[in-house]
Design a protein around this nucleic acid. Structure first.
Length: 425
RNA sequence: GGAGAGAUGCCGGAGUGGCCGAACGGGCGGCACUGGAAAUGCCGUGUGCUCCUGCCGGGGCACCGUGGGUUCGAAUCCCACUCUCUCCGCCA
């Protein structure tokens, strides 16, 4: 959601943004709907003012006068009943269009039409070298009986997986590793609800744009979140925060559900792209004035977690055509997957400025003035993808997998997968 | 799932058709008192939209869970919904 004042004062700026993102939205139509709304408001509020004034006078009038005034007021009421539905209709149309407008992208965001226009921000580490042909995570997962997608497809359909043996253990290890790194930095750990109202989906900017991407319950009007960003952001909806409490830093663990509509045939093997996975997410509410510094700090935190695991990665500055509607800026962190010989997105962090806080009405008091907060979010650890990045990067010729040093203390010092006894499966 | 109670400002809580944007109390902020504090006293304390205006400022409208309705006029009456709480049942 954008500030309506900008719509009145500088619609060109909005047109420019819509163009940069390759969207087709009729900004002129929005502008004219808004002027129509305002002129209707003037009309209606004038009538209401008259009605309120006379209504106050009525009790003190003589019966004769009173009868006449009431007669007049009937007319005004009737007029209002004509105008009000027109206003409502205009507002509905306007809101529908407004909901489609993107956030304003930051000046540092490259203009481009799709992922091919993303710009490498920087690289970290070196590509691991192998004196054998590295396997894909899918092969390793099957070899070591760590991931079972075959049975999962019988139980739940395609794009599901069972994590098994050390993979199941590593899930908790990774979550704990991420939390242990974040909590000393002042992030408040949370386990949020994963079923939320439509309001929360809309407010965080996922609806209406991406509605087909998410699961909904049939008997209740609830939606399964695709990321803990939704409940973490909506945590403060409708609130006025205090300046001295900002920034508010949260980290939330949740399962994430995604329909992956329109990705048929993409990343079919293994568990790189699945309908359900677990993730540790970071969410920050910040003052606008310091939010961009806070955001770079967030990017560093995200990288710190990846560095600890020893991955080689590149950070991408995502272009205008590839960032989400709510995003003013977004970094993707892509880790090298030796088995696929590709950089793949493992985590990302977005700055949404006041886009979400406007929709969810999250504000703060700044020396008496009330302003919208800025929000930003980042993945701390996407468990499934991190797991398979470990499998591909730490694999050895004999098919076993080394455990990243930083995780070993969580696993009683074990250094290699497998270490659990196996039964026939 | 069954039975009941409720939803009002930062909080508690009054208000059952016009005098209510909302009593009273608490909290919070300011001032006074004090060496400083406590206690006390006084004053202040919502948000959104919109119009006039260069700003300062001023006017109007809306908001008492949400959405509709009745009425000249609704926090107050009617209908529907949502949520919360209590008890029973079920349950990790």
């Amino acid at each position: 959601m954008i500030d309506l004042k900008i719509l009145q004062e500088n619609p060109e700026r909005i047109k420019e943004e819509v163009g940069k993102r390759g969207l087709s939205i009729d900004v002129n139509e929005i502008v004219s709907l808004d002027s129509r709304r305002r002129s209707l408001l003037v009309e209606i509020e004038g009538l209401r003012a008259e009605r309120n004034k006379v209504s106050q006078e009525i009790p003190g009038l003589s019966p004769e006068e009173r009868r006449r005034k009431i007669e007049d007021m009937r007319e005004i009421s009737a007029k209002l009943k004509d105008f009000e539905p027109i206003l409502r209709e205009t507002e509905e149309k306007l809101n529908l269009l407004l909901a489609q407008l993107p956030n304003f992208s930051h000046s540092s965001v490259p203009v481009g039409k799709d992922s091919s226009d993303n710009v490498i921000h920087h690289l970290w580490g070196k590509k691991p070298e192998f004196d054998f042909e590295p396997r894909t995570h899918e092969e390793i997962g099957e070899l070591l009986d760590l991931v079972d997608t075959e049975r999962a497809s019988r139980v739940s359909g395609s794009r599901f997986g069972y994590l098994k043996n050390e993979a199941a253990l590593l899930e908790f290890t990774l979550v704990r590793y991420a939390l242990d790194l974040l909590i000393p930095k002042g992030f408040v750990p949370m386990v949020p609800p994963v079923l939320v109202k439509e309001e929360a989906m809309f407010g965080t900017g996922f609806f209406p744009a991406e509605e087909t991407e998410y699961y909904a319950t049939r008997l209740d009007d609830l939606h399964l979140v695709g990321t803990a960003e939704v409940p973490l952001c909506a945590y403060h909806m409708g609130e006025i925060l205090e300046k001295e409490d900002l920034p508010l830093r949260y980290t939330g663990f949740s399962t994430c559900f995604r329909r992956e509509a329109g990705t048929y045939g993409k990343d079919l093997g293994g568990i790189f792209r699945v309908h359900q996975f677990d993730k540790v997410e970071i969410f920050i509410f910040s003052e606008p004035d310091s939010s961009w510094e806070e955001y770079e700090l967030l990017r560093e935190t995200m990288e710190e977690i990846m560095k600890g695991l020893g991955f080689h990665y590149r950070v991408m500055n995502m272009c205008t055509g590839d960032i989400g509607l709510p995003n003013a800026k977004k970094y993707d962190l892509e880790v090298w997957f030796p088995g696929q010989a590709m950089y793949r997105e493992l985590v990302s962090c977005s700055h949404d400025t006041d886009f979400q806080s406007r929709r969810l009405n999250i504000r703060y008091r700044d020396n008496g003035k009330i302003r919208f907060v800025h929000t930003m979010n980042s993945t701390a650890c996407a468990v499934g993808r991190t797991l398979i990045a470990i499998l591909e990067n730490y694999q050895q010729a004999d098919g076993t997998v080394l455990i990243p040093e930083i995780l070993q203390p969580y696993l009683d010092g074990e250094k290699t997968i497998p270490f659990l006894p196996r039964k026939r499966s």
